[in-house]
Structure formats: C-alpha cells, structure tokens
Nucleic acid binder design. Structure first.
Length: 224
DNA sequence: TTGTGTTTTACGACCTCC
DNA sequence: GGAGGTCGTAAAACACAA
C-alpha cells in the first residue's frame, strides 16, 4: 500500500490495483520529517480512464484528493458556531480549527459551503413566499373577474329594462295627453331595479379605480 | 448489488475591501 | 497585494429504489 501526501489533515491510502483511496482524518502529531509540522502526504488518485502520472496536472490531482468527512461532533460544533455568526474572522477560524482538530482551511471551506446552503435555503423560502402571494392574488383576480361578468350581465339587463320602461312611458304619455287631463307625473311609477344604492358590491376599496368611481357617481345620480 | 439522485467537501476563478 | 468573500463545479459520500 502506498501512502501519499494529501494535506495537513489527512492521509490517503491507495492501492494501485484497486484504483481506490481511503482518506482518514489526520492523526494528531502525524510523523513529519523534522518533527515540526505534520507531514503532508499526498497520493494521486486516478479517475476513470485517466492516465495521470506523477508530474501531470497538479490541479486535477488535487481535485482527486479530497473528502475528509467530518465527524458528527465536528459538524455539531461548526453548526453551533455558524448559528452564532455566519462570517469567519481569521482569529475565530484558527480557534475553531484548533478546538476541532481541523485544518483552518477546512473550517473556512466548511463556512463557505454552509453560507451557500443557507443562502439557497433562504432563496427557496423567499420563492415559496412569493409564490404563495402570487397564487392568492391570482385567486382574487379570478374572483373579481367573475364578479365583473356578473355585474356586466346585471347592467345589461337593467339597461334593457330601462329601455322598455322608457318606451312604455313615452307610449303612455302620448296616449294620456290626448285622452286624459292627468299629468305625466301623476301616473309616474318609480322604476325598480334589481340592485340599488344599498347593494353590497363587495368590491374592495383598492379596486375602485376611476372608472369604477365614475360609474358609482352615475348610478348614485340616477337614484337621487 | 447496482444504478441514480442528492449532499458534502474541496478547489479554482474572480471580486471586493483594507 | 493579501485575506476573505461568492460562484460554479468536480467528485466522494451517502441514501434509496429496483
């Protein structure tokens, strides 16, 4: 089995025969050449169909060497820390890294990713909220449109009734003027509509635009 | 067991701020 | 110019249905 430099926090063991690697969190005080800093051991992992060898694309190799799954305890501590403050000053980063036995870089990356997840979640929540508002408005619009339809029908009927009554009035007036001395006013019968000034239109105030208000004035004038 | 979709860890590129 | 941020993405780890 080969052992290769991976990073300050992990060893990578790989078998060339299986073309696999296992990454293990760093053992504190991992052996180093001079005993100072932990040895960075890295071994390149071959991806499918890759013919990478030593000295080839370092960036690609770096990408292949990763994944140090954090323990539950580390995760909990990081989450707790994130709840307190989403940003990470260098002092705090060092402190967290020390306490959890992680590389400061790992802590920084974890916070970056956590912020991204948090942002996504916020966006999803915002989207759900806006969608709900939109649906409510859509429903209101449908309701109002059906009301408009109904009222338009009523208006048409009322206009037709007015026309008929006017015609009748004209007819009666001409008949009466020749056969009776009674005045038109005396025979006048008030016109009854299906709806009047007391009708509850059920239209919210904010929907009362200029046209609507003008129509109201028109109908109010008619009933004065 | 395996194929597939999702989540997590890590990195490079680029940007902003001091 | 360096530190730390976001964004996009690769790939390991994981979950789960078939």
């Amino acid at each position: 089995m080969d052992q290769a430099v991976l990073g300050s926090q992990a060893y990578l063991y790989a078998t060339q025969t299986h073309n696999q690697c296992i990454i293990v969190n760093q053992i504190d005080g991992a052996p180093s050449g001079d005993g100072s800093k932990p040895v960075k051991r890295r071994r390149k992992r071959r991806s499918k169909g890759s013919s990478a060898t030593n000295g080839e694309d370092v960036a690609a190799i770096g990408r292949m060497l990763r994944k140090r799954k954090l323990t539950d305890e580390q995760m909990n501590m990081l989450e707790y820390s994130f709840e307190n403050e989403h940003k990470l000053e260098s002092g705090r980063k060092e402190k967290i890294a020390r306490e959890l036995g992680l590389d400061p870089r790992q802590v920084a990356v974890w916070f970056q990713n956590r912020r991204a997840r948090w942002k996504n979640k916020k966006l999803e929540e915002e989207y759900a909220k806006l969608k709900s508002q939109y649906d409510t408005i859509l429903l209101g619009q449908c309701h109002l449109e059906s009301q408009v339809l109904k009222l338009t029908e009523q208006l048409s009927e009322a206009q037709s009734e007015i026309r008929k009554l006017s015609e009748r009035l004209v007819q009666e007036t001409s008949t009466n003027s020749s056969s009776s001395s009674l005045s038109v006013e005396a025979n006048y019968t008030p016109i009854e509509f299906e709806f009047g000034p007391d009708t509850n239109y059920n239209i919210p105030f904010y929907m009362m635009d200029n046209d609507y208000l003008q129509n109201m004035e028109y109908w109010d004038g008619l009933y004065v």
